[in-house]
Design a protein around this nucleic acid. Structure first.
Lengths: 220, 220, 220, 220
DNA sequence: GATGAATGAGATTTCATTCAT
DNA sequence: TATGAATGAAATCTCATTCAT
C-alpha cells in the first residue's frame, strides 16, 4: 500500500496558532504548547466529535489550563481553523501527487497508490475534515470558501485527466471528479470512525477499481 | 427523472411522536402539534445542523412553546429518533424498488431512475441522515445499530446484484456496494446543502454511469 | 422644598425590558420580574457602582436566578440601557417643568423649587446618571447620543431663558447653561454618594442663589 | 489665557513608583520604566476609563511585559495611587496660586487666569481625577480621605474669600465653594472627554463670570 | 392541551497575578 | 532588569428541562 505520512504539526517549523497567538511572539515553549493543544484538539475531535468536545476536554488532554488555551486560541472554532490550515496544506500537497491514470494496469496501480496516501491523510485528519464540512455549512462561510477552493482545484485537475481518458459521453468530467471525491470522503469516514469494519487494503483495491473502470475508462 | 415522493409525516395515518407522546393517546390537535414539531425539527436541523439547533429553535419554528415540546418529546434526540424512524421506513421502501441492473442500456436506465428517487428522498431527509451519522458515532449506539441494519440489508442486496453482474476480480461486491452508498450520501449532501451548485439531472446521469460501468460491468 | 417624586418603574404601565424581553410577550408575572430586576439593578449600581456590580449581585438582590436575568436582559449593559430609558423620560419631563426665572425673589423661588425636584430625581436615578456618563464615554456611543440629545434640548431651553434674563456680555448663554447642569450633576453626586455630608436644603438655597445671581442676573 | 503647565512625571527628579518599587532602589533604567508605565496608565485610563482598563492594556501601551508591571506596582490600583499622588501635589500647588478675588474687573481676571491653569491641569490629569472619584466611592477609603483633605483645604480657603467678598445672605460660603469646584470638575470632564465640543476660552470666560458674579459679588 | 416563567448545572471566557528563564 | 508562559478563580452566558397557571 502506498503510504503517505502526514507531517504532524509538531515536526514542522512554524505551528500555526490561533488569532491571539499571532499577535504575540512565541518562544520555543509557547510553540510547544500550541502544538500540544493542536494535537489534543485533533485527538478529542476524533473521539467525541467536534460539537460535543468542550474546551475543557482539550485542555485536559493537553495537560494545561483554560487560561493557557485562550492565550493561544480565541475559542474552539479558532483551534479548528488552525487545524484546517494544516490539513489544507497537506491536502493540496497530496493532490499534486496524483500521476497520469492510463487505462492499463499501470494506471490502476497509480490510482491505488494515491488512494492509499489519501487514506493515510484521512486517518490522521478525518476529524478535522468532518468538522470542516459541518462547520462550513452552518457556522463560518470562510471555511466553506477554503474548502471549495481546495476541492475545486483538485477537481479541475482530476476532471482534466478524466476527460483525457474517457470515451464515455454520458459522463461529465467535473461531476465525475466531485463524485469520486465524495465517495472517498464518506467511505473513509465510515472506515475510520469504525462505523463499519473493513479490510482497508481490500477496500482500496475496490475503490481503485471502481474509479479506474467507472471514470477512467480502465480495462476490467 | 424518476421521481420518488417521500410521504411527509403529516400525510400519514399515525405520526410517530416521541416517548412521552406514545404514553398518551393523541387526539387530532395533538397529532397536528406533533407533526408541526417534526417538520420544524427537520427544517431547523437542515439549516443549523443537528448539534447547533436548540430546542428553542424548533419551538419557535413550530410556533409553539417549550412546555409543549416536552409534552410530546423527551428531548431533542427523541425528536430525531422519530424522524429517523420515518426516514428509515422510507429508505427501506426505496431500497426495495431497485430492479435488476443489466449491462445494457436498460440496466443503466434502471439505475438512473432509482438514483432519482434516492435524490428525492435525500432532498427531504438529508438533515436527518446527516444527523443520524453524527449521532450514531458519538451519542447513541442504538442509532448506529438501526443504521447498520438498514444499510446492511441494502448493501447485501446490492452486493448480490453486483456479484451477478461483475466479472471484475479486484472488486469486492460488498465493499463496492458500500462505496456506492457512500458516494451517493456525500454527493447529495454536497448538492442539497448547496456547498456546490450542480445540475441535478446531469449529476444523476454521471452517477448512474459511474455505478453502471464501474461496478455493474455496464457497457460504456 | 419643592418635591419631585420620580415614578418608580413598577408603578408604570409598561416596564421597558431589555432586548430579549422585547422579543417575547410578557404576562403579569414576567413584568413583575423585569421590574424586580430593574430595581435591584438600580439599587446595586448605587451601592457598588456600575462597573463593580456583577450580574450575580443583581440576581441576588432581585431574589431570582441567573437564567431569569438573561431571559429579560442580554447583559448588565442592557439592563442599564433600560434604566437609562426610564431615567431619560423622567429627566425630559422634569426639564419641562422649569418656569420663567425672573430677577426678583419669585424667580429665585422658581429656581429653588425646580432644583429640589432635580435633587429628588437625582437621589433616585443618581447611579444610572453616573453610569450613563461613564459608559457613554467608553462603551456605547448610543448612550452618548441619547445623553447629548436630552441635555442638548434642556440646554437650549435654559440658554434661551438665560439670554432673556442676562445683561452680562461675557456670559455665553449656552455655555452658562451647560455649566449649571454640570454643577448640579457633580454636586448632587458628591452629596448622594455621601462623599460629603451637607444639609440638602442649605445646599439647594446656595445653588439657587449662585444660579440666580450668576447667570440669571438676579438681585442679590 | 493663564497657562499652567503640569510637570509631567518624567521630568521630575523622583518618580513615585508603587509599593514594590519603593522597597527597592531604582537605577536610571528602572525609573524610566516606571515613568513609561505611569504615562501609559494615564493614557489608557483616559481612553478606556479606569475600570475597563486591564493591566494588559497598560503593559501594551508601555511596550513592556506583565512581569515588569508587577516589578514596580502591586496592581492597577497601586499605579492609580501613584498617579493620584502626583496629581494631588499639582492640585495643592495650583490651589495656592489663587490670589484675592475683588469685585472689580481685576478680581474677574484673577479668577479667569486661575481657571485657565485649572483647565490645563485637568486636561492632563482628568482621567486620574475621575478614577479617583470613582474609586473613592467604592474601592478604597484611603483615596477618599486624601481627596477630602485636598478639596477640604482648598474649599476652606475658597470659602474664606467668598465670605469676605459676599454680601449675599442666602449663600453659604462652604457650600458655594464646593459647588464651584463641582462645576469645574464636571464641565472640564465634559469638555476634555469630548462629550461636548466647546471653545475653551469662551467657556473659561463664562465660568469666570458665573463664579465672579454668582459667588464673589462681582460687578456685572 | 398549551404556555410563559423559572431554574441551575455546566460551558465559555477573562484577567490579575505568579513563575521560570 | 525584563519577559513570555502559565495559572485558576471568578465572571459571563447558554440552554435543556421542570413547573405553575
Amino acid at each position: 500500500m502506498g503510504e503517505y505520512s502526514p507531517t504532524p504539526p509538531s515536526e514542522r517549523g512554524d505551528p500555526v496558532g490561533g488569532t491571539p497567538a499571532q499577535e504575540r511572539s512565541l518562544r520555543a515553549q509557547g510553540k510547544k504548547t500550541v502544538n500540544r493543544l493542536l494535537e489534543a484538539g485533533l485527538d478529542v475531535f476524533g473521539t467525541r466529535g467536534y460539537h460535543a468536545t468542550r474546551v475543557d476536554d482539550i485542555v485536559k488532554a493537553a495537560k494545561t489550563s483554560h487560561g493557557t488555551f485562550y492565550l493561544y486560541f480565541s475559542n474552539k472554532e479558532d483551534l479548528l481553523a488552525s487545524l484546517i490550515t494544516h490539513c489544507a496544506e497537506e491536502m493540496e500537497a497530496l493532490f499534486e501527487t496524483l500521476g497520469e491514470v492510463t487505462p492499463d494496469e499501470a494506471g490502476r496501480a497509480e490510482l491505488r497508490e494515491w488512494l492509499g496516501r489519501f487514506a493515510s491523510l484521512y486517518e490522521h485528519y478525518g476529524p478535522v475534515i468532518r468538522a470542516w464540512a459541518e462547520v462550513a455549512e452552518t457556522v463560518n462561510p470562510a471555511f466553506a470558501e477554503r474548502g471549495v477552493e481546495i476541492l475545486g482545484n483538485f477537481t479541475v485537475n482530476l476532471a482534466k485527466r478524466i476527460e483525457k481518458a474517457s470515451t464515455n459521453g454520458s459522463l461529465d468530467p467535473n461531476l465525475a471528479a466531485v463524485s469520486l471525491v465524495a465517495m472517498l470522503e464518506r467511505i473513509f469516514y465510515f472506515v475510520f470512525s469504525r462505523q463499519v469494519d473493513f479490510d482497508l487494503d481490500a477496500l482500496l483495491d475496490t475503490l481503485a477499481s471502481i474509479a479506474h473502470v467507472g471514470v477512467f475508462a480502465g480495462n476490467r
